[in-house]
């Protein structure tokens, strides 16, 4: 293993990874601006992302000086909605990806270490999870119970955690399990728990972290899709913004009301792409064969 500074040097060499990181940082700044704006420059009565309304204009209004990205069909500021949602998207993506990766890492390493029935059971569960069409399932679930922000993030995380990621991490754990240092730990008297915790998991973790990046993308795309269908009980998100435009019938005139769907659509695309690109950059750190020399 190389030190952190060396890993950073390898990552920096990856243009795609650096680009992704810069985009994520820009989104971070953008999201951080929201509380500042609403507390200083913007009047909450007009600029609140959910209940704001500007009585001076006909809605939806195209971009003006007061509303740089225009307003939505019920008179709310698009830029404010976009900013407000950024932080939530971060939270949703990272939270559900974290849950996915923690579950996936634990199950993957345990399945690889013990093998036998444990292994077969979790791998079949993962197969089922991969075969199952999630979006339709969640549409059904969302129409039965009111899915709010945190339960939704947790459901996404858990469903992801039992899915394909366990197979990938198990494969990695299997290759770690047969290394001589595992035997050495056993000869030293280490218990199975010790070996999994101190040796297998740390050696699988870089790959877990890499897949966490890809899972952020997956979680945000799922959220956007389900919000668009209107089955999530989330007050505001990028997907919700497109849903609002669609529900009011403005999505049919494709180019005419572009400010209703373009900013949020672009944000979803860029944000997901950025995490994917960071993942690709990390891939080069984790997987030396991809590295150019």
């Amino acid at each position: 293993m190389r030190g952190l500074s060396q890993n950073w040097a390898v990552f920096r060499e990856s243009r795609i990874g650096m680009l992704g990181l810069i985009v994520i940082l820009l989104f971070g700044v953008f999201g951080a601006l929201w509380p500042i704006m609403i507390n200083t420059v913007w009047d909450p009565l007009i600029y609140h992302p959910v209940v704001g309304f500007d009585p001076m204009l006909l809605h939806p209004s195209p971009p003006t000086k007061a509303h740089l990205l225009g307003t939505d069909p019920i008179g709310r500021d698009i830029l404010a909605q976009l900013m407000f949602s950024t932080g939530r998207e971060f939270l949703l993506g990272v939270l559900s990806a974290l849950i996915t990766v923690v579950i996936g890492t634990v199950i993957g390493t345990v399945a690889a270490y013990y093998g036998g029935f444990t292994d077969t059971f979790f791998m079949r569960v993962a197969d089922i999870m991969m075969l199952f069409p999630f979006i339709p399932l969640l549409v059904v679930v969302g129409s039965m119970v009111r899915l709010t922000f945190f339960p939704f993030a947790i459901i996404l995380g858990v469903l992801g955690g039992f899915g394909g990621i366990t197979i990938i991490l198990k494969a990695q754990a299997l290759s770690v399990k047969v290394r001589p240092y595992i035997d050495a730990a056993r000869v030293a008297g280490g218990s199975s728990f010790h070996i999994i915790r101190a040796h297998i998991i740390p050696n699988v973790l870089p790959l877990s972290f890499l897949y966490m990046m890809f899972n952020v993308t997956g979680a945000i795309l799922s959220e956007a899709t389900l919000s668009f269908f209107g089955v999530l009980n989330i007050d505001m998100s990028w997907g919700m913004m497109i849903h609002t435009a669609e529900a009011a019938g403005y999505l049919f005139d494709f180019g005419k009301y572009w400010w209703l769907w373009l900013p949020s659509g672009l944000a979803i695309t860029l944000f997901c792409a950025a995490f994917y690109m960071v993942g690709r950059g990390l891939d080069e750190v984790v997987n030396p064969r991809l590295r150019k020399r």
């Binding site: 240092y181 035997d183 101190a198 050696n203």
Partner: peptide
């Protein structure tokens, strides 16, 4: 062990 490159955990 035989292989000192493999018998030490690289993360320790």
């Amino acid at each position: 062990f035989q292989d000192p490159y493999e018998s030490l955990d690289p993360r320790m």
